[in-house]
Design a protein around this nucleic acid. Structure first.
Lengths: 205, 205
DNA sequence: CTATGTGAATGGATTCACAGCC
DNA sequence: GGCTGTGAATCCATTCACATAG
């Protein structure tokens, strides 16, 4: 039971959640750290350590109650709550993410999409009316958006991210290969798809 | 100058490469580990440690030669070589990746795309004729594909990944939220977009 | 006797600090 | 003097191992 939770642990909680969800559907009531660890292909001690950040959850000698554990994780991760997000840059990737089912499944709702190309602004794209990037500040404030997904071309990334910061967004999921320089009040997570592919293929030898 | 190169180092090499490329265009001939580190927002010692895996590259007291360094990284990472990849699952995400410019920029070429839906197979999608997943083995062998991008729905992931293994693919970039169970001869890299978004938004509090 | 919760040990990556070379 | 290359020190995450509760 500590205060600071590592990022890796948060990521694993979600994996646990998915399996617990599945187990519940099957009617499984109880599970040991070992069984859960096997499903995720990690060590049982890792599971216990991760869970220990959140207090005593399992009866000793008896494993964990699946329902209680799932609910605890759901609460910690705010699963069940809807979180509104916006997407800036409706190119191929942005458009795909605008209708990505995986986000919905975790309670994310794409509440606004932006672009600055005249042939996109004002048009329906993947169920959303594309807004002009100029309206970012206004819309972010109106809808109280805290998280943005950045899928603009690299050249526009830094400029757009400054606009996001000014619009008081709290976090950016950055799909551009550009290192964003912003104040550290704003949390950034980078996903560089080409880099992932390159790193993967490097080890194929 | 060691033998085993950490994955994190490989990922950073690509960042260095991008900046070196840019510096060359500017006509910058020489750079210190400190300047390069500042651009990437890491410590200078990290840069030197990463580079030291590949031998002595910088004149001591004199920094690194931009051109030589860029070429070294290009060689290590096979930049300039075309690497053919395939995509399995032409939903929204798969389609977006099929025409993703970032891949091209690093020398990846989408050489085949697959799906098993009757309304997709045989049709042109993003410049590629969608092939039937049944032909995986045949096409992978013909085109000597080593890397696959997996963007099928979660339910189909494990089954499809087995087909990929049988087709002798060497690496999979897995966009499904499913933990693939395969032999360890096959290298897997997981990108769970919803998890990334969830992990990011967890820390917004 | 079983399986948790957690300090202690390990392992890996990052950072420091400085000897060595330009 | 300036800056690299690298062992040593540090930091953080994972794993071990065991006292403890049921």
């Amino acid at each position: 039971m500590k205060k600071h939770i590592p990022e890796k642990t948060v990521a694993r909680l979600l994996l646990y959640y998915r399996y617990l969800y599945f187990l519940l559907q099957q009617g499984t009531k109880n599970i040991s750290s070992k069984s859960l660890a096997d499903m995720v292909e990690i060590k049982d001690s890792q599971v216990r350590k991760d869970l220990s950040y959140f207090g005593k959850l399992g009866g000793q000698g008896a494993g964990y109650d699946v329902l209680a554990l799932r609910d605890m994780i759901a609460k910690v991760l705010d699963i069940g709550q809807i979180t509104n997000v916006c997407i800036i840059g409706m190119g191929g990737l942005g458009s795909a993410l605008a209708s990505y089912k995986g986000f919905e499944a975790l309670g994310f709702k794409v509440a606004a999409v932006f672009d600055n190309a005249a042939n996109k602004v004002g048009h329906r794209l993947r169920g959303h009316t594309c807004l002009d990037s100029k309206e970012l500040s206004k819309v972010v404030a109106e809808k109280d958006l805290k998280v943005a997904i950045l899928t603009v071309p690299g050249e526009a990334a830094q400029k757009t991210s400054i606009a996001l910061e000014q619009a008081r967004v709290k976090a950016i999921l950055n799909f551009t290969p550009v290192k964003l320089s912003l104040s550290k009040n704003i949390k950034i997570r980078n996903i560089d798809l080409a880099m992932e592919l390159k790193t993967l293929s490097f080890f194929v030898k």
